[in-house]
């Protein structure tokens, strides 16, 4: 099957962020970047669909400056066959502008399945996948925690609050992937070495007009340090009292 996986390069979340001087973005000094978590699940899902289905081709797409090529190489090292870099100076906040660039590339590409992560872990908009589906006129399923494909039909499981549902849809389709599919595989040494030689095409991103912008960004107020009031069952009444009177959460 011909599958496209759209991935995003995001900062490693395991740091204390600072706000840049502009006040509208994080300070990028010293940040490390990697593939957004859910996109890793999407890449894994794409590889598994083809492994189960007896072959095909997976293309990874990433939009952004030259640095995103490193993230695309990582996807290639997992076993994805080829990569497309949609080049632009900076990734806009406006998902609609991004969706148009992706749709321009994906439309007419003959993809049976277009996968996204459920959301990017930096901006958390959850919007680009559904927007691309809309632009291409394809069915869209979001937050799939299980994905099976057979004979032109897809089946996805979605987690709900306290329940799950299974949906069916015709291919081609756009699916955004939640964790639970399977942990993204570790690239093998062979995979890493092979990734260097796989095709990576660079094209200018045909971004749509940017209509949504960030005006201010601020860090959450500092939280007070936690307090240990004691140990064992005897302390429970005191804990409940403090949660009611002091923390006022009960």
């Amino acid at each position: 099957m011909k599958i496209a996986v759209c991935i995003k390069r995001v900062p490693d979340m395991d740091v204390r962020f600072k706000i840049a001087a502009s006040g509208t973005a994080v300070d990028e000094a010293g940040l490390k970047y990697d593939m957004s978590d859910f996109d890793g699940y999407a890449a894994e899902a794409a590889l598994q669909v083809n492994e189960k289905g007896g072959g095909g081709e997976v293309t990874a797409l990433c939009l952004g400056p030259d640095a995103v090529q490193e993230t695309l190489r990582k996807a290639l090292s997992m076993g994805i066959d080829k990569a497309v870099h949609l080049k632009c100076d900076a990734v806009p906040f406006d998902g609609w502008a991004i969706a148009q660039a992706l749709a321009a590339q994906l439309g007419g590409g003959g993809y049976d399945l277009i996968l996204f992560g459920r959301m990017s872990i930096d901006s958390s908009n959850q919007s680009v996948g559904p927007m691309v589906a809309e632009l291409l006129g394809l069915p869209c399923v979001t937050a799939a925690s299980r994905l099976d494909v057979s004979g032109g039909t897809g089946k996805a499981q979605r987690e709900l609050e306290g329940a799950s549902e299974t949906v069916e849809f015709p291919l081609p389709a756009v699916v955004s992937i939640d964790e639970g599919v399977a942990r993204p595989r570790y690239p093998s040494l062979k995979g890493i070495m092979a990734a260097k030689k796989k095709p990576l095409e660079v094209k200018p991103a045909q971004l749509g007009a940017v209509t949504v912008t960030v005006t201010t960004m601020e860090l959450p107020p500092e939280r007070n340090a936690g307090r240990i009031i004691g140990e064992g069952p005897d302390m429970v009444p005191e804990l409940v009292r403090l949660l009611q009177t002091e923390a006022k959460v009960l």
Partner: peptide, 8 residues
């Protein structure tokens, strides 16, 4: 390539 191997 060395960097990619070390990272993984």
């Amino acid at each position: 390539l060395i960097d990619a191997i070390l990272e993984e």
